[in-house]
Design a protein around this nucleic acid. Structure first.
Lengths: 200, 200
DNA sequence: TGACCCGCCTAACAACTGTTAGTTAGAATT
DNA sequence: AATTCTAACTAACAGTTGTTAGGCGGGTCA
């Protein structure tokens, strides 16, 4: 058992690109092989099945989101500053691991039932980080009264939408995009509340 | 040329359901037929190709969005009221034509190149309705200074995300969802501006 | 030198893909 | 009663799907 041969990584990267562009069902194993100048069957020396490639990509992305956002969610900050940092971290993952993130967000439904349930559970837990941060702000009086669960969905939908339209060579840097989103949402949440927030 | 036999509609509806659940590439023509207790080849008495089914669904959804939101965008209102009504109308389409809307939003990339370009163009024009409404508010001083194009993307990403998680038998009505979104975004846009807005 | 292993190839499998052609049973029309 | 139309059927096509088995060349290590 070698710890992650680079060849396996290359295969998963190629798969990530194609899954993102053509979708999981729209991509054949031979397509993936061809993009690496290999023959279809040769992939099976490194990977057990097509679904395992998808699974590896999805897990990889889920881990990244948790690794970047989790620590911030558990840190000791005012709700507004915490949420701003979480938004920045989430956008950073969406833009830097763009292919994996897009596959994670759109292709997870092609996983087998149990794997699908696993990531549904992880995803719910992740959304909980945002729900809790918002609830914290409502409780402390930083934010106005609102449905934390619903608001978290709105924010995450908008942030995840970035994966659809973001282009690395566009005129906006990931940091700018993140700040714009953070500004917008924090304004919305602190509406009508006497200001206390300095910039994050 | 009969005007839209009901059978053709039934087929497109069944296709819409399956395309939404399994994706376009993940759905076979025989799957669609089976859901109508028919044989695969029988569909071709009513439909010329699989892609034509997708095209019909996509066009149907695009037309609905334009029909509901377009008139509001061209109406003579303050920017805040106009935007609120546009958000309501958009959410109404997303929730009432849920299957078509989800297919429209996620499966359009499986269309042929020219058709894909057609809807890319229509979509850009539609997004322009929101850009213009926001720009109007910025110009009139109702809204703070901001990038109208970017803001429109944020709003539409959030609204389109509804198609992913909305369940007709959930605890929130489409109208409630729409108002929550409208409240949130209009608060964000009018932040720091002395109030003038009465409820829509 | 011989044994072994890694990375890839070829060839094949059974199942499934979108689509077409030809047919048939019944209803409507003449 | 004969004709045409409707809506479906069956069977087949050529190609593609994920996956497997067996083989082969080249490097590593005894």
């Amino acid at each position: 058992m070698t710890t992650d041969t680079p060849r396996k990584q290359q295969i998963e990267d190629a798969a990530s690109t194609l899954f993102r562009d053509r979708g999981y069902a729209g991509t054949s194993v031979r397509d993936i092989a061809q993009s690496l100048d290999m023959q279809g069957g040769s992939l099976y020396a490194h990977v057990a099945s097509k679904e395992d490639m998808l699974w590896a990509i999805v897990i990889r992305a889920a881990d990244r989101f948790n690794a970047e956002v989790g620590p911030i969610a558990q840190s000791d900050r005012t709700a507004a500053r915490k949420l701003r940092k979480m938004i920045r971290a989430h956008v950073a993952v969406v833009t830097s691991a763009q292919k994996d993130a897009a596959v994670f967000l759109h292709e997870w439904r092609f996983l087998s039932t149990d794997r699908r349930e696993q990531i549904a559970h992880r995803r719910d837990r992740y959304e909980g980080l945002f729900r809790d941060a918002i609830a914290q702000g409502v409780k402390s009086g930083e934010f106005g009264r609102m449905d934390a669960a619903q608001t978290a969905m709105v924010i995450l939908s908008a942030l995840n939408g970035i994966a659809t339209w973001y282009q690395p060579d566009g005129k906006l840097t990931p940091a700018q995009i993140a700040d714009q989103h953070a500004d917008l949402f924090i304004r919305a949440l602190t509406w009508g509340i006497p200001e206390t927030e300095g910039a994050s």
